[in-house]
């Protein structure tokens, strides 16, 4: 495998880049730009590409066109891309840390915690206002994640299997409360909550873009810096310790980063599942690489996946808006299965 190595921060950050991975990441970047452009050009409001470009450069044909492009299409697409990257990175980190290929943000209760709080407010206190949803969802995500982390750590330190089992148990308990509220709550309010639970970017704006961008600015560099301990941890605790990694600290630090990314994403758009699970696997199958480059590819894959899902959900059956969470599953599952089957077939040959 031909590679080159990028070194930064006085050698503290080193990224080994196989050429194929570099080409794939370049391709993904172009694909993301394509999705962004396509999303800006397409929608229920009739605007041709010339009018969209004119609007972007300050010569909008009408106030309504300006609103549609700047207030609806642009922030929505940016949020979809950022959220996709966040969830994908969160899933990748959790898969490395737990050494479990099925790990994703729902394992640490992020989605379930947010869902419980949002459904509770929607059904029991509908007058509180939808604009509080992101804050409440963020709080719920962190609270449940903290509960799982605390419950799964012992005096002897955290144990991966214990962490996974505790996560599954607590998440199931939280989900049962949510199901009870949806079952017994007012049907119309439950339907409103279900739209959010399905993961939808239909109502986001520039506030969410700003919020996600600030998080990205602080958390994603930390993720990249974590590539080195992650590389060691994936070979097991003993090997990592032998390589001088403070395993316990690194593991919990990475879990907290993963929770922060996922909680921010869920708070912005709702419980958008499946991306955290599937994007790291898709990225790995697109190009083999080291941990750092794999994280880059995973982030780009997640962004592309959710960006495409949102575009398809908004344009395919307009005016019906299909939540991006449903579309990620519809697009992602067949692709995921096909890639696994293709890999199996190759290995059998």
């Amino acid at each position: 495998m031909s590679t080159t190595t990028l070194i930064g921060f006085g050698g503290r950050l080193a990224l080994r880049v196989p050429y194929r991975a570099a080409l794939v990441s370049l391709g993904l970047t172009f694909a993301i730009i394509g999705v962004l452009t396509w999303s800006l050009m397409t929608g229920s409001y009739p605007l041709d590409s010339t009018q969209v470009w004119a609007t972007l450069f300050g010569n909008s044909p009408s106030d309504t066109a300006s609103t549609v492009v700047w207030e609806f299409r642009f922030p929505r697409t940016l949020v979809a891309l950022l959220v996709g990257a966040f969830l994908a990175l969160s899933g990748a980190a959790l898969q490395y840390v737990t050494r479990n290929p099925l790990a994703d943000p729902s394992l640490v209760g992020v989605s379930q915690g947010a869902a419980l709080v949002v459904v509770s407010v929607t059904i029991l206190a509908p007058g509180m206002g939808s604009y509080l949803r992101p804050i409440l969802a963020f709080g719920g995500s962190l609270a449940v994640a903290a509960l799982i982390l605390l419950a799964s750590s012992s005096r002897r330190g955290g144990d991966t299997l214990r962490f996974i089992l505790m996560g599954i148990g607590v998440a199931a308990l939280i989900s049962s409360f949510t199901s009870a509220l949806l079952t017994y709550g007012d049907i119309d309010r439950a339907m409103s909550a279900l739209g959010w639970l399905a993961g939808s970017v239909h109502s986001v704006g520039w506030d969410e873009v700003r919020w996600l961008s600030v998080t990205a600015f602080f958390v994603i560099p930390a993720f990249m810096a974590a590539a080195r301990p992650l590389s060691a941890i994936r070979f097991g605790e003993d090997v990592a310790t032998g390589l001088g990694i403070r395993v316990r600290m690194a593991r919990w630090g990475l879990i907290i980063l993963a929770v922060a990314l996922a909680a921010t994403a869920v708070a912005a758009v709702g419980a958008l599942g499946f991306v955290g699970l599937v994007a790291p696997h898709l990225a790995r199958r697109l190009a083999h690489s080291g941990v750092g480059m794999h994280l880059v590819l995973t982030g780009l894959t997640g962004a592309l996946l959710v960006g495409l899902a949102d575009f398809a959900g908004r344009a395919a059956f307009a005016p019906i808006q299909i939540p991006a969470g449903l579309v990620t599953a519809i697009i992602g599952v067949p692709v995921f299965v096909a890639l696994i089957l293709r890999t199996q077939a190759r290995s059998q040959l």
Binding site: G43, S44, Y45, P46, T64, T67, V68, F72, R73, T122, P126, G127, G129, S130, Y131, R133, D188, R189, M191, S192, G195, W196, S200, H202, S203, R314, A318, P319, I320, Q321, P323
Partner: peptide
């Protein structure tokens, strides 16, 4: 609970009424 804002914009309404519990 999830109307398409672009279709609403195209209609150029002078008043929009929505449900308070689905006002995200």
């Amino acid at each position: 609970n999830q109307p398409d804002p672009e279709i609403i914009a195209a209609l150029e309404p002078d008043l929009i009424l929505i449900a308070a519990w689905a006002a995200d």
